[in-house]
Design a binder for these strands. Structure first.
Lengths: 365, 365
DNA sequence: ACGACTATAGCAACGCCGTTGCGTAATACC
DNA sequence: GGTATTACGCAACGGCGTTGCTATAGTCGT
């Protein structure tokens, strides 16, 4: 992003704190020894890290645990109500707002329609009133709101927070949405593509198990959110995951994007023809293409149009993975449905906001 | 790889040293101020880092530079002859060995044929004699050999150094090649897929400019080496980049891999039919698919079968990128031919070896 | 009941990082 | 030749995880 930067002790501190927080997020309780084993830190260092986290209210002592002979160990746990974040999923016709706690649990969810061809001003005013309504009904978030994450259809530029040309939205060309929203809302704002936010939602809650993953979203378009090497992959222009516009049928029907035989147009034609099985097989072919290209071991299926026929799609993808390629037993892939349903994008956007403050520090590595 | 591990001051040290070394590799000369500007370190810290590097012989003082008023600054430069590495490119019928210096420059290159269906023993003995010949003719490498990098056709497991099932090689099933070679050669060994080694070769020499990139290789098969987020992307099972076996023609001709209409079979059929333009367009379609999926801004073309008709392929790829999709002006992609010719895989393997010692420390980020 | 044993917790000193403050060296300019 | 300017490096500092050691709070055996 900003070019290489150096490492110093503040990096060491925030890195290790993030490591312990990630552990706290994914385990009901912690104790000094188990954290030391999981992180490689010495028990003494764990005490110091936990001390800092307790001081900031992120972690608390939950009691002691007798585990046989010897002094019982103190038990710690995440204070999930110590921080909150708001996530927004900006779709073509609707705005979904969620409130999540520090563990990524959704505390509140609401959808409001958006007018056809809504403008930036339309969105900002609805964001404003929607967030005000949430904070009013959740006074416990007072002073504990980390910020607002926005997941939106692309193309956009994550690095400078600008919407370049949101697909099929007339008034959205080179709109500095992050800056506008920061000013309007008075809170830190994180802007990202919807699918990237979605895959973050899964990763934030599953930590280490989720190292190489893709979230496949079918919802007025087909896209993929990528999580590679333990972090989101956005590509050079925040344009990764334009999965629906890969050609699976050379010379096939023309697509709105200008190419022929794109996954999306071939899939949609099958749906229009009422052949859902074929549509699912087409999508599955694309998923296997994705596996061959980036070799993820977790595939999460999401999106309203997919969830409506969840089992058909999931079975097609699983079948394709098993039979399409002569895949050996070591090529294990876990195919699941999104655990968060329709909230996944908005919740992921909220978690991205939390992640900027309480996740792994960027750069270095 | 080994799960999350903590950060400490040894990490800070090696990180900053790697940062300065990367700068030294890609710049003719260094001075304290420019390093400080580029890394964000204070000048005093740069002095300490450079002092450590000089102590290890990796950097030397090259003189002073008068740049106007004030005390002239000391000028430093990488000692390219302070470390060497050997790279091996194991192909189906040949073994290529190169010697590179610390800058990644190829100092020696040699090819020997490999027998049909060669065994692990065949390879190890040829590695042994080949490396002995190189060190004998390059006495300056005495005591300065970092190790041996091996780039090979997959599938293999980079994490534990095992060849799982090398494509079309009968005697290569679950062979712990890294362990065997380490023992036989008495040197550290790094094992990786050929294409991943190849993309590392480009990245090692171009540093920051090369953040999101793919190396497309056409040479008895079609594969891609991926460089994402400033580091190699291998995927969950070291199986990323099996680009030739993505479907571009749904229901097309059957491929050896078991699917139908794979990029590789469609491309090869076109070549067999003598229609090189079509073959190049098919490959270009696959490249654009790759861009849509992972959004790289550097595409490097390589491989004997491609280089033979380099311009045809390059033009086809450039045309496809320009016209295939309604791409906006911000979607810039740089398409180049590999700068290292036939040595690219072997040289990249050597640089991977150098990278394990003198590159960015793993984990943390 | 009571002492031996054991695992945990935390204080204090330490080593090593980059940072800061400041004195010194070497050049151009007047 | 004096002065401003730029670069260098010693020394003290703050902050990180580590190490050594003592205090603590339980279980277990007698």
């Amino acid at each position: 992003m900003t070019g290489p930067t150096h490492a110093d002790q503040t990096y060491v501190r925030s890195y290790n704190e993030a490591l312990v927080l990630a552990l706290a997020r994914t385990t009901p309780t912690l104790d000094r020894t188990s954290v030391a084993d999981a992180t490689g830190l010495t028990p003494q260092a764990v005490s110091k890290v936990l001390g800092r986290l307790i001081e900031h209210g992120l972690v608390e002592v939950a009691g002691v645990r007798r585990q046989g002979v010897g002094k019982p160990s103190s038990v710690y746990r995440l204070v999930v109500t110590s921080r909150y974040a708001i996530g927004a999923h900006v779709a073509r016709r609707s705005l979904r707002l969620v409130l999540t706690d520090l563990a990524g649990e959704v505390r509140h969810s609401a959808v409001t329609p958006l007018p056809d061809d809504f403008t930036p001003e339309d969105l900002l005013s609805r964001l404003s009133t929607g967030i005000a309504a949430i904070t009013a009904s959740h006074p416990e978030t007072e002073g504990r709101l980390t910020g607002v994450g926005i997941g939106m259809v692309g193309p956009l530029d994550h690095a400078d927070g600008t919407v370049r040309d949101a697909h099929r939205l007339r008034h959205w060309h080179d709109i500095p949405l992050r800056a506008l929203a920061t000013e309007t809302l008075g809170l830190p704002v994180h802007l990202d593509k919807d699918v990237t936010a979605g895959v973050t939602a899964e990763a934030w809650r599953r930590r280490g198990a989720f190292h190489e993953a893709a979230l496949i979203m079918v919802e007025s378009g087909i896209g993929a959110g990528l999580w590679l090497g333990g972090r989101p992959h956005r590509g050079a222009h925040t344009n990764a995951g334009e999965f629906g516009h890969t050609v699976v049928q050379f010379g096939g029907p023309p697509c709105v994007c200008g190419r022929r035989g794109c996954l999306e147009i071939v899939h949609d034609r099958a749906v229009e023809a009422g052949d859902l099985d074929l549509a699912a097989r087409v999508l599955a072919t694309g998923v296997v293409n994705l596996l061959q290209t980036i070799d993820v071991d977790h595939v999460v299926l999401a999106g309203a149009d997919l969830i409506r026929h969840a089992e058909v799609y999931r079975n097609a993808v699983r079948d394709a993975i098993r039979t399409d390629v002569r895949r050996a037993d070591w090529l294990t892939v876990d195919v699941t449905l999104s655990s968060m349903g329709a909230d996944v994008i908005a919740a992921g956007a909220a978690m991205q906001m939390l992640n900027t403050r309480y996740g792994m520090p960027v750069r270095a590595g």
